[in-house]
Amino acid sequence: MKKSSEDIDDLIIKGVDLFLTEIKFLAKNKKPDVILCVLDEKFTNMVYGTKTVEIDEEEDEESSLSIEINFRRLLKAKSMEYNIPIQIVRDRIVKPSKEMQDEATIAWNFFTALYYKASGTPWALKKASTNNTCFAGISFYKSRDKSTTQTSVTQIFNEQGNGVILRGTPVKESKKDKQPHLTEKQAFDLLYSSLKEYYEAVKIYPQRLVIHKSSNYSEEEVQGFQRVADKMNINSLDLVTIMPTNLRLYREGGYPPFRGTMLSLDKQRHFLYTRGYVDFYETYPGKYIPSPIEIRLFSYDESPEQICNEILSLTKMNWNNTQFDRKFPITIDCSRNVGEILKYLDKDQKPQIKYSFYM
């Protein structure tokens, strides 16, 4: 008998409750660094169906398992109150099928994620200057009822990958460009609160701040962010929009453009190939034709070349998937992934500030 969506939703909720009972016990009595939640394939198939899940190259396996009430997101959100990161594992990884990654890649990704969630630092950005630079990502997500109200989320990384997560306030969609925007007060409050939390975590304020956003900046947003920079004596502020584009470049001989190729239309508008031909491999290590990302600079103190080079470096910082050439930097990837889990938190539930609780 075919199960209805209501039956599946009920199964997810009961399954989450069972895991939460064990997570609560372990957190109270054992206090581990990370808790593994292993999913039996029979349960997984009941929840997500028996069809083989197609994994997009830009998405990790966990985030591709999506349903109206999403098991992964609900469990991540509900388990936060026990203050221990969890790692969801499907038991099929012990015997990978042909459509899955090879055993070595699975092991590398799995243990890298565990190491980071246990407060380790797998790798870090090379420090380019003596300035203390931080990178923040801001994006928007819809509530679970898919209403038009959207809420902002920000996270801040330094060169070591340390950072904080913060949930913003509801925002409205602009009638001009049909994109969600913060008011000047929301922009100020969100960034100010994030930097205060960041200081509590690493005990230092940044000298330079780079904000990556998935939509254009409004005048109010620019003014709000600039007020924070002035108030906190931040010497350098770069406001950057990063978005997909339909533009394509072609290299003589039919090969994809080199990873790191940058095309500038003017001082504000640039295109960057974060995926492409890699000299070390003497090929393009991907399944699909690579496309660049569009980078718009609304306000900047550093050169466009440096800003693009930093974006390229930040594509290597996703410890949930150790692919070295992600399309988007961790700032954008993280803020999107965080938003998908924050929507499952209760309004009065305080979110965890560490990214390890969301990956």
Rank of each mutant, 00 (worst) to 15 (best):
I12M: 01
I13P: 03
I13T: 09
K14G: 04
K14C: 07
K14L: 10
G15C: 07
G15T: 02
V16H: 06
V16K: 00
V16A: 05
L18P: 00
L18R: 11
F19E: 02
F19G: 01
L20W: 00
L20E: 00
T21E: 14
I23L: 02
K24G: 03
K24V: 00
K24N: 06
K24R: 13
L26N: 10
L26G: 07
A27E: 04
A27D: 05
A27Q: 06
N29A: 11
K30P: 04
K30S: 11
K30Y: 15
I35H: 04
L36A: 09
L36S: 09
C37V: 15
C37H: 02
C37T: 00
L39P: 03
D40T: 03
K42D: 13
K42M: 10
F43R: 03
F43N: 01
T44C: 03
N45P: 02
N45T: 03
M46R: 14
M46N: 11
M46A: 14
G49K: 06
T50E: 08
T50F: 10
K51I: 05
K51A: 12
T52S: 11
T52D: 07
T52G: 01
V53K: 12
E54Y: 15
E54D: 07
I55M: 06
I55N: 07
D56F: 11
D56Q: 09
E57S: 15
E57C: 11
E57F: 12
E58A: 09
E58P: 00
D60N: 14
E61L: 09
E61H: 07
E62M: 10
E62S: 09
E62N: 07
E62Y: 01
E62D: 11
S63I: 08
S64P: 01
S64Y: 04
S64Q: 04
L65S: 03
L65C: 09
L65Q: 06
S66E: 10
S66C: 08
I67E: 08
I67Q: 11
I69M: 09
F71W: 02
F71R: 01
R72L: 07
L74E: 02
A77P: 00
S79C: 07
E81G: 03
Y82V: 01
N83A: 13
I84F: 07
I86W: 03
I88P: 04
V89L: 12
R90W: 14
D91I: 14
I93D: 07
I93Q: 06
I93F: 14
V94E: 07
K95F: 15
K95H: 13
P96L: 10
S97M: 13
S97Q: 14
S97A: 14
S97E: 15
K98D: 12
E99R: 08
M100G: 10
M100N: 05
M100Q: 14
M100D: 05
M100Y: 08
M100P: 00
D102N: 15
D102T: 01
E103H: 11
E103M: 12
A104Y: 15
T105I: 15
T105R: 13
T105K: 13
I106H: 04
A107Y: 09
A107W: 08
A107T: 14
W108Q: 10
N109A: 05
N109Q: 06
